[in-house]
Amino acid sequence: MTDAVKFDTALPAKRESRLKRFFQALALMRESPVGMIGLLLILFWVMMAILAPFLPLYDPNAIMAPFQKIGATAPDGGIFWLGTDHKGRDILSRIIWGAQKVLIWATFATFVAYVVGMLMGVLAGYKGGWADEIVSFIANIFLSFPFIILCIIIVATLGASGWTVVVAVTFASAPQIMRIVRGLVLDLKTRDYIFAAQTRGESPWYIMLVELLPNARGPLIVDACLRLGYTVVAIATLGFLGLGLPPPDPDWGLMLKEAVPLGAFAGHSMYLPAAALASLILGFNLLADGLREISLRD
């Protein structure tokens, strides 16, 4: 960032080094077995989500034979690898399609929350004064709600859909992201390169978005990882409370809600989605743990 004039010519070289740095980061992950396990768990579910349309699965919403055990033969001669649920839908297919759904919405919701939170944080931290007071007060309003309670109220008022889940997660997460970014920016804005940019006469928004934010990314990556996990939990919890992504499309939380009362004679239909959910969230937590460990070591 030292030479803004030669920005264009410097771009290709920079991109190459980015890629190299990415692989270096991956190599670093090997130093943390805990982080590696987390990464593998996440990659497994991401692969499942990507491959979902190509795998030889039953339609997740097709109603076939109810309460089939694990490995039972389907009416058309196929096999229900993980059995079927109370409505006769293939559980394996529902879990895999559910993974796709929860990963897409969680990533999208976390992304939106990050955009809003980072803009608020960098504005509050860099501008200070009234901007800081106002943004911090708005953030404090939403921080005074317990996370899930805020989500419940928003979704209950706006009606359950993927978009309201995004809105709810943004309202609940953005203030927390704003606090982290604000703290980082308060520290970064006293650096020489910021003074240099100010002296060059760069606009405040250029300084905030091009100079400050990229340099605050380290702690934010660890936080983003944890937050993705929280968002998956939030979506699943809302689903479990009947406020999540609307049926009949598979949603892990809703699958649990429907299966638990029938657990006495169809245990697998309740344990399997629970295990899927637990493994994915464990993955995010372990990866965040590993990343933090590695970043502390440097």
């Binding site: 699943a236 939380g253 649990l256 638990v260 309740m270 629970a274 637990a278």
Partner: peptide, 18 residues
Amino acid sequence: SVLTTSIPEFVTATFLTG
């Protein structure tokens, strides 16, 4: 402690109920 904290309550509740 990482394992138990990573698992959301209603999943723990599901396993314990089971």
